[in-house]
């Protein structure tokens, strides 16, 4: 016993150090999946208040730009309505009602916290369970995709940003339909990398890259960016650098995409896989 006490007295700093590092590492191991850390959840409430203040200031400074973006989206949507009205007036009566069943619904949300300078960036938005947001929903803006919801609380949600080295999204080239997996390499926040495009495919700089709709998180054909550079990898695939159309540093308002018939699709897929 005395030896033990002597030992503790002698190495007390080392022991304190090891205990504290142990706590820190266990937090690091369990807490990073975001929603299973209770401790964090309690304290996030306080920090959100402060973040909210900072976000309000930034929002005010960007009002001009937000207005312009909203106006342009407005005119885009008006054009769409015009087109749809014409179509439906011609085709009415010929197509069964179920064809018009809505598949995706959009929930508008405001970004309250966001970063681009880490390797694993997350976006916090001000809508949560109460507003119908669940995990695995896609987050889009009017200029591209932004991320995927990974955790929700009553009033807030956290999305894994597209600028997170752990996120992989299925994407394709619009011109010829070849698809690959898209992820961020952690270097430039304006560029992501599209992998698995075979070498025989013609890829040109400036080609549009869009979502495939394979993952049931994003609708098909949402613009992501344009090809900036086609690189060789040494294997049979190109490494295509994609210039994002969305500037993640200026993310303010986003839309969360809910897929209304997602469960039906997932159940069907599960039966055969």
């Amino acid at each position: 016993m005395r030896n033990l006490l002597n030992f503790i007295a002698r190495y007390n700093n080392l022991i304190v150090f090891l205990i504290l590092e142990g706590i820190a590492f266990s937090l690091l191991a369990t807490g990073n999946s975001y929603h299973n850390s209770r401790l964090i959840k309690g304290i996030r409430g306080i920090t959100y208040g402060i973040e909210r203040k900072g976000s309000d200031i930034r929002k005010y400074l960007q009002l001009n730009e937000i207005n312009r973006a909203l106006a342009s989206e407005n005119s885009y949507l008006k054009n769409n309505i015009e087109r749809l009205i014409r179509q439906s007036s011609i085709e009415s009566g010929e197509i069964a009602d179920t064809m018009y069943q809505q598949q995706y619904n959009y929930i508008v949300a405001e970004v309250v916290n966001n970063s681009v300078n880490k390797q694993k960036n997350f976006i916090t938005i001000d809508k949560g369970l109460r507003h119908g947001i669940t995990t695995d929903m896609g987050v889009v803006t009017n200029q591209g995709i932004a991320g995927v919801i990974v955790g929700t609380s009553e009033n807030y949600s956290v999305a894994m940003s597209l600028l997170n080295i752990d996120l992989k999204i299925s994407a394709r080239l619009k011109s010829n339909g070849y698809f690959g997996s898209l992820n961020w390499d952690g270097t430039d926040y304006r560029q992501v990398v599209l992998n698995e495009i075979p070498q025989h495919v013609n890829v040109h700089t400036g080609d549009t890259v869009e979502t495939t709709g394979f993952s049931a998180m994003f609708p098909e054909g949402v613009m992501i960016g344009t090809v900036a550079e086609v690189g060789q990898t040494g294997s049979d695939f190109y490494m295509v650098k994609v210039q994002l159309t969305e500037d993640f540093r200026r993310l303010r308002f986003v839309n969360v995409v809910g897929n209304l018939i997602k469960t039906e699709r997932l159940q069907l897929e599960e039966e055969y896989q």
């Binding site: 590492f25 690091l28 191991a29 975001y34 996030r44 306080i46 920090t47 402060i50 970063s115």
Partner: peptide, 8 residues
């Protein structure tokens, strides 16, 4: 707590 990275 402020940067959302528990333990790091």
């Amino acid at each position: 707590f402020f940067s959302g990275s528990p333990g790091m």
